[in-house]
């Protein structure tokens, strides 16, 4: 009895938040059609600022260094390198010996459409993470889009199997997570961590993973550890089956795959935080 009472206490504010976000979503959505992309907005302001005809470009100045980046850039701190390399080796073997053959077998018995549907389902479960983190970063519109997506895809899209919100209403998901929220408020990556099973991360994003976990419905509703691990593995196999070959291509065209993955992770995360 007591158990139910505490759950209810958590959930009723959640319902209210959802309701509120849904209200703002419908409002934001009508605005959205007016200015398609955030780019369009900044372009206009820039053009009037600089009065140069081809200067309507927001990312240029900031990204100008992209091709002339001459300096080596700040190195990524990696005090745990020996341990990280050991785990990298472990995951690499895990991929070739277990994950890849299993994913191959799995993709032999499931049509691609099914794998996409499974991916959508798991992706839908991460909506609370994205919605909360968009909100924490002050992106009210993105957050309300996430909530709308969740409601539509869980109902009309049947438990998130289809992406009705994107396909029909062009409501696109953001990729926000707790690590990015920390980055948004100025937290650097800290040092690099390569986790067994989980792969590349850093101090900031590992803390972020804990936050993400608490926002995941499975953990929020206190599922068994067995169920959590089982579903996580299934998600991983399904995802690998959809991206077979990517890992090989990247590591085989790198000279020191460990360093290449570390840098790619860093660039990828920085790109996401900047967005």
């Amino acid at each position: 009895m007591n158990y139910f009472r505490t759950k209810k206490n958590i959930i009723s504010p959640l319902y209210m938040a959802v309701f509120f976000l849904l209200l703002t979503a419908t409002h934001a959505w009508s605005e959205d059609t007016a200015d398609q992309s955030p780019d369009a907005q900044t372009d206009v302001t820039l053009a009037t600022d600089e009065a140069v005809s081809d200067a309507g470009d927001d990312t240029w100045t900031e990204e100008d260094n992209w091709d002339d980046e001459w300096d080596e850039g700040d190195t990524i701190a990696d005090p745990l390198e020996p341990l990280n390399r050991a785990f990298f080796h472990f995951n690499d073997k895990l991929y070739y010996w277990v994950l890849k053959p299993v994913s191959r077998g799995y993709s032999a018995i499931t049509p691609e459409d099914v794998r996409i549907v499974v991916r959508n389902f798991f992706d839908n479960l991460r909506t609370p993470t994205r919605a909360v983190n968009s909100l924490l970063q002050g992106q009210v519109r993105d957050s309300s889009v996430e909530v709308t997506r969740f409601i539509l895809n869980s109902t009309v899209g049947i438990f998130g199997l289809g992406d009705f919100a994107k396909d029909v209403l062009d409501l696109r998901s953001t990729k926000e997570d707790t690590g990015q929220t920390l980055g948004h408020y100025g937290a650097g990556g800290g040092f690099y961590i390569y986790w067994p099973f989980l792969g590349p991360s850093n101090l900031r994003d590992s803390l972020g993973l804990v936050g993400d976990a608490y926002l995941h419905p499975l953990i929020f509703f206190d599922a068994d550890w067995g169920v959590i691990v089982g579903l996580w593995t299934f998600e991983k196999v399904n995802y690998t089956a959809l991206t077979l070959g990517d890992y090989e291509l990247f590591t085989e065209t790198a000279l020191d795959p460990y360093t290449a993955v570390k840098d790619a992770y860093n660039q990828y995360r920085n790109g996401l935080i900047k967005e």
Binding site: G73, L255, D263
Partner: peptide, 21 residues
């Protein structure tokens, strides 16, 4: 001169990779 796949610049990635060698 360079391309970025999912924000990861090919040149920057190879520069780190080459440097470590």
């Amino acid at each position: 001169k360079d391309l970025k796949i999912e924000n990861v610049s090919l040149i920057a990635n190879y520069r780190r990779d080459f440097n470590s060698i």
